[in-house]
Write a protein that binds this DNA or RNA. Sequence first.
DNA 1: AAAAAAT
Length: 615
Amino acid sequence: MRSSWADSVAAAETAAAGSTANNSSAGNNSARTRSTYVPPHLRNRAPSSDPPAPVYSSSTSGTDGSGYGPPAGGNRWGGPRNDYNNRSGYSSGGRGGGWNNRTGGWDRGREQEVNPFAGIENAVEEVGEQENSGINFDAYEDIPVETSGDNVPPAVNTFAEIDLGEALNQNIRRCKYVKPTPVQRHAIPISLGGRDLMACAQTGSGKTAAFCFPIISGIMKDQAAQRRPGWCCFPLALILSPTRELSMQIHEEARKFAYQTGVKVVVAYGGAPINQQLRELERGVDILVATPGRLVDLLERARVSLEMIKYLALDEADRMLDMGFEPQIRKIVEQMDMPPPGVRQTMLFSATFPKEIQRLASDFLASYIFLAVGRVGSSTDLIVQRVEFVHESDKRSHLMDLLHAQKANGVHGKQALTLVFVETKKGADSLEHWLCMNGFPATTIHGDRTQQEREYALRSFKSGNTPILVATDVAARGLDIPHVAHVVNFDLPNDIDDYVHRIGRTGRAGKSGLATAFFNENNASLARPLADLMQESNQEVPAWLSRFAARSSYGGGKNRRSGGGRFGGRDFRRDSSFNRGGADYYGGGGGTGYGASGGGYSGGGYGPGVTSAWD
DNA sequence: AAAAAAT
């Protein structure tokens, strides 16, 4: 009988093609396989009927971005697609196509790419500040950078020096990026040169663009991409990140960078209905941004194949390992169908570079270049750090005092955005409740809230509706919330790196910020690293904290800063213990001006004695 | 000890 699954799929294809493709340029379309998705390298023929969004003159560049979107009825479902992109949380676009067939005209109009830049101008107006996406480059000028490895491509000083293609350049202008940040200046040439990269850099340093630009540019130039029939989709690039919010954020940024390049970016994470994500994937995907759990799910369902992956980026790798994602990550990278290191191009980003990440680097990367970018704020004083001794029982009233004071000097009578970190989810809820009871509009974000609640809280905070956000560590890393004026460590974390990440939520993009920590006897183990860190960043260290630090046991393992100084880590391949018998990872004396950096360096890798070329 | 992440 003729009713196999494949046949019914084929039948559905035909039907769908017939129903959606009966106007304009459908002619050469009908023979296409199940998806009418057009791979990037075929997209540069001008779309005959649907002009892509506004005022974009495609001009030069052979691989220009003018041709986004399939020529006709890109979606075989003809289904509602308008909501998928703007992920507003409550997208109503749930059910299948049906009704949409009646409104073909409307639907076709929506085929054009949603302009990710829409509304940006307004946002700037609202805040009344000179720039929003820009970065205070002077503050970045003196951030130390280290590279090592074989034949490191020279850094660039301007975007113009890099051949990213006109479409991408246009988006860079739209983003108002004037000048590359240090991590971008180094990482982009490395990636464009086809090299693997291990980068120690924090979010806020321009990382996302650093890995997105080469990926997008590479995909645009790629001639090998091809579509295959079936339910499975074949992304060309994969970006993994630890939290849902971070994935969403990367997706949003990547969409801006890829606007009108024809490169399609899709995000997949847990906590949201998978069907929507599946439909989005079916419409075609070049760059997949995902959290590990949801991706494993998709792989097991065979809805995504990694066979075509050319670019792999792991963001916040140390964080992912901390969260126990190593098995999932190894499964994704090593045990599915992803091309091996050397065939694909891999970029590993991590704020720190401990042993586990070094192992990951050895396993995932091929003759990579190591790049360490100093901590943002490490050599400047963008973030004013204050530590106050507050007993547990006094914390709430103390916080209240801070908030009142802040309200008093608030701009335009508006409460400045304040991010309050607490240790537990329960603690977050109860503090939020207490704040609200006391007249401070607050909301909270933590792992016990539904994804909808989390997204709503984040929006409400960003918009200033609830200018106080009480958060657990889910919000500590990577989230880019503009205009956070004050970070309060209501409960200090146990790990100094977490502290660094938390305070990094303010003072973003070169703006100044304030970070206040409530310290008491429960935080004794943090005293020394905290005092060290503050000293390092030219902050005033209270005498009582120094006393605490002196008292706390010496050399406590985990809390010792791993890289020493301003970097999150150093290239462990320099360790003599690692370069067994001359067959080291460096071909020739390569490297950079990093001469054997006069001693101080205790072979075992990573002791406090490590010095860098800048020390 | 807690948090995060697939259902």
